[in-house]
Simulated assay, not measured.
Amino acid sequence: MDVRLDITYKTPKGLETTFSSADMRVEEAIAIAGDLERTGRLKNITFVDHREQTWTLKQLKKLVAEIETEPHHITVYFDGGFDLQTKVSGLGCAIYYEQNGKSFRLRKNAKMEALDSNNEAEYAALHLAVQELEELGAHHLPVTFTGDSQVVINQLSGEWPTMEKALNSWADRIEDKLKKLGIDPAYEVVSRKKNHEADHLASQALNGVAVRSKVELDGKSK
């Protein structure tokens, strides 16, 4: 989870000012807050998440302690490919997350039949990713979903209406699952080049190459 700091600062001569930081990871915000407190000049500090919900330092420390052993700081990349001639789809997703102070990457793809369009394949790929989140035990936290499908991203974020019955059905399934897991989704559109990993997984699925892997990464998640 990312938060910003809303700060009231008081100088030794009694001058006060208020300012806000840029958004940052919650662990970084806690560290900076601690450093500011040690100056003895911090009059007040509030942490604000992307929903404009406010937190105290005590509340944030408790949250970090509670989620440390569970998957958190999750970013999902997804992509779907569709062969018009065979009506076969390839689904791919890559999930980056942290747990117990370590960073991990999970890759998963799948081959699927009976879909009718590339847009359906994109939705199916996102649904696959959400199923993997459930398997990981991710729940009650924000997750960023990243893909190159403007249709899926803009429809799920509410920017575009979902008119097609098939796509609306996929959207309902995804939103119901996210609600069940307590996941607060954020959606981001990227270029196909920046979504190359999920795209490659989808292509492998179309070519009959099944992938499911989990590795520990050096440093922070992607």
Score class of each variant (00 low, 15 high):
82 F>V: 01
35 D>T: 01
39 T>S: 01
210 A>L: 14
95 I>V: 02
105 R>K: 14
35 D>M: 04
160 W>C: 12
109 N>L: 06
114 A>H: 15
159 E>H: 13
110 A>E: 14
88 V>M: 00
46 T>R: 14
167 L>F: 09
194 K>T: 03
41 R>K: 08
1 M>Q: 09
211 V>W: 08
70 E>Y: 12
171 A>V: 10
66 E>S: 05
53 Q>R: 15
63 L>K: 04
41 R>A: 12
129 A>T: 06
145 F>E: 04
158 G>W: 07
130 V>N: 10
177 K>N: 07
106 L>I: 09
217 L>V: 03
161 P>W: 13
122 E>A: 10
80 G>W: 04
158 G>N: 02
80 G>K: 11
218 D>H: 15
47 F>A: 02
174 I>W: 03
120 E>M: 05
118 N>D: 06
110 A>T: 13
182 G>V: 04
194 K>Y: 00
30 I>V: 15
119 N>Q: 12
71 P>V: 04
47 F>W: 00
129 A>Q: 08
189 V>Q: 09
222 K>C: 09
112 M>Y: 14
28 E>H: 07
151 V>K: 10
198 A>C: 03
181 L>P: 12
81 G>Y: 14
192 R>I: 09
159 E>T: 03
76 V>A: 02
49 D>K: 04
90 G>F: 07
35 D>Y: 06
118 N>C: 06
67 I>A: 02
112 M>C: 00
199 D>H: 12
61 K>S: 13
137 G>V: 07
91 L>T: 06
73 H>Y: 00
14 G>N: 08
68 E>W: 00
190 V>D: 04
19 F>W: 05
125 A>C: 14
222 K>E: 15
194 K>E: 14
185 P>A: 13
10 K>F: 09
197 E>A: 00
111 K>S: 15
47 F>S: 09
139 H>E: 06
49 D>P: 02
33 A>M: 12
133 L>G: 02
13 K>W: 15
124 A>D: 10
88 V>C: 12
11 T>Q: 11
24 M>F: 04
114 A>N: 15
155 Q>C: 05
42 L>T: 13
74 I>F: 13
9 Y>K: 02
167 L>Q: 05
64 V>H: 10
53 Q>M: 08
101 G>R: 03
23 D>K: 12
213 S>A: 02
107 R>S: 07
152 V>C: 13
210 A>E: 15
34 G>T: 07
60 L>P: 01
73 H>R: 09
130 V>Q: 07
155 Q>E: 11
23 D>H: 08
157 S>K: 06
168 N>I: 01
101 G>K: 14
210 A>F: 07
196 H>T: 11
160 W>A: 13
176 D>H: 10
104 F>V: 00
215 V>R: 12
153 I>H: 01
